[in-house]
Amino acid sequence: MTGRVIRIERVSSRGGVVEEPVVTAKGYRLADPAHGKHKHHAENATHVRTLHEAAALIGKGFSIWMGARGKRASLIAPKSLRIVHAGDAQAG
């Protein structure tokens, strides 16, 4: 797929809520697989400003923190994510 990334979705959200990527003051927070079992630690976080940048890193194996109102954020692996681009049939 090509085009502007408009959404990153969790394939199976918890408890029927819609989870979205968590945005911090530094941007979207991702975890580098190179850090192995320590990738979830805050000091190992990678931050990017746009969904497009986040999607590019997810394509390289990075996980992303996602959450919803009333649900604690959790780290979601790339295999459990769907990247939605402008013009995708799912975007409508």
Rank of each mutant, 00 (worst) to 15 (best):
G61F: 07
L57S: 03
I8Y: 00
E9V: 08
H41I: 13
G3W: 09
H85I: 04
I64S: 01
A34P: 02
E43D: 13
H85R: 10
R10I: 05
R69P: 10
K39N: 10
R14V: 08
G92P: 08
S80N: 14
K60E: 15
K60M: 14
E43S: 13
H47F: 15
A45V: 06
S63D: 08
H52G: 10
I64F: 02
G27F: 02
R7P: 03
T2I: 10
V23W: 05
A56G: 12
H38N: 15
I64D: 00
H85T: 04
H85Y: 09
V17Q: 11
T50S: 11
P78C: 05
A31W: 02
H85D: 03
G16V: 06
A34E: 09
G27M: 06
V5G: 00
G67V: 01
R7D: 14
P78I: 04
R69V: 14
L75Y: 02
G92V: 15
I83K: 03
A68F: 03
R4P: 06
S12Q: 15
I76D: 01
A77F: 11
V5W: 00
N44A: 11
R7I: 07
N44P: 03
S12N: 15
A55F: 00
P21H: 01
A55G: 04
T24N: 08
G87A: 02
L51K: 01
A54R: 00
R29V: 07
A45E: 07
K71V: 08
G61V: 06
G15F: 12
V23E: 08
E43Q: 12
K39R: 15
T2D: 12
A77L: 12
D88K: 04
E9I: 02
V5F: 03
Y28I: 09
I83N: 01
M1G: 15
I76N: 01
A45R: 06
R7Y: 11
A31H: 06
G15S: 11
V23R: 10
S80V: 03
V48Y: 02
D88T: 06
E19K: 03
T50Q: 07
E9S: 08
P33H: 04
Y28Q: 00
I58D: 00
S80L: 10
K26N: 13
T46A: 10
R72V: 13
R10V: 05
E20H: 09
H35C: 12
A25M: 12
V17P: 02
V18C: 14
A55R: 00
P21N: 02
